[in-house]
């Protein structure tokens, strides 16, 4: 395997967590993603930006095989996690998704208590050996998601009763609880107000210490604020990928520049 090969885009020598090569996605006859190559680094926030319908969310869903649940969707090419092909026939998507967690656009807490929402993942994956250990995982996840202080007195209350920002942080806690290595976030702030958005963005920055985070966003400011690396998608193609600072100040591709300056989008 060519794990350690440096990419021509000048990525530094941090560990590469996930690697995508020549990825093609088809929805029925529609060619949604064309020839995408991306390396996701460990302990880094990578942002996918681009105009709506450019395929950034579709590509994100390839990274933990969420597209498997859509019948007409077909993925070609190679995506690896720690050097192992996640589309290999031997791979159980269930195991994969425990390692590559996901947070969705709209907060989607289960209609259960806050505790059960967070404990759901550890329970199905058998991560805790007893009630005490489960309590510990729940508490730690809620702490990491920066929501513990707000909910610690009402863990039995339904998760659907929280405010939008709290719900999204609860969903992040839920995703963290399974102990993922990569966390995929699909426009996690698009349904939130500015204050809740700030809280979640702050959280994302903290999460970088432990996970590699991939975030899809339609807000360029957000990408600039939270990410270290940025990938710009346009019409199903990956146009440019590199250091966030470079993409936003001195992009190579004229299309990237047009998007950044607001001429397309």
């Amino acid at each position: 395997m060519n794990d350690m090969r440096m990419t021509e885009r000048g990525v530094d020598s941090k560990n590469i967590k996930m690697k995508a090569r020549k990825v093609q996605v088809f929805y029925g006859t529609n060619h949604a993603i064309k020839d995408v190559d991306v390396d996701i680094e460990d302990k880094t926030v990578t942002a996918f930006i681009g105009p709506s319908g450019c395929g950034k969310s579709t590509f994100l869903r390839c990274l933990n095989r969420m597209n498997d649940t859509i019948d007409i969707c077909r993925v070609e090419g190679e995506i690896t996690l720690d050097g192992e092909d996640i589309y290999d026939r031997k791979v159980d998507p269930v195991q994969l998704r425990a390692k590559v967690g996901m947070v969705f656009q709209k907060p989607n807490p289960f209609p259960k208590s806050i505790y059960d929402n967070v404990a759901y993942g550890p329970r199905i994956h058998g991560l805790a050996r007893g009630k005490a250990e489960l309590d510990e995982i729940v508490e730690k996840s809620l702490r990491r998601a920066a929501i513990w202080n707000e909910v610690k007195d009402r863990l039995d209350a339904p998760g659907t009763g929280l405010s939008g920002g709290q719900q999204q942080r609860l969903c992040i806690a839920r995703a963290i609880a399974t102990g993922p290595e990569v966390l995929l976030m699909d426009e996690p702030c698009s349904a939130l107000d500015p204050i809740a958005t700030a809280q979640v963005e702050e959280l994302i920055d903290e999460l970088r210490e432990r996970f590699s985070v991939v975030i899809v966003t339609h807000s360029m400011q957000q990408a600039a604020r939270v990410s270290q690396k940025t990938a710009f998608f346009h019409l199903g193609n990956l146009v440019e990928y590199g250091e966030t600072s470079k993409i936003f100040t001195n992009p190579d591709d004229p299309r990237t520049e047009s998007y950044i300056t607001g001429r397309i989008g």
Binding site: E84, I86, D88, K90, V91, Q95, H125, G126
Partner: peptide, 8 residues
């Protein structure tokens, strides 16, 4: 990912 653990 290639080995299915007992729980899975």
């Amino acid at each position: 990912l290639f080995t299915e653990d007992a729980r899975t």
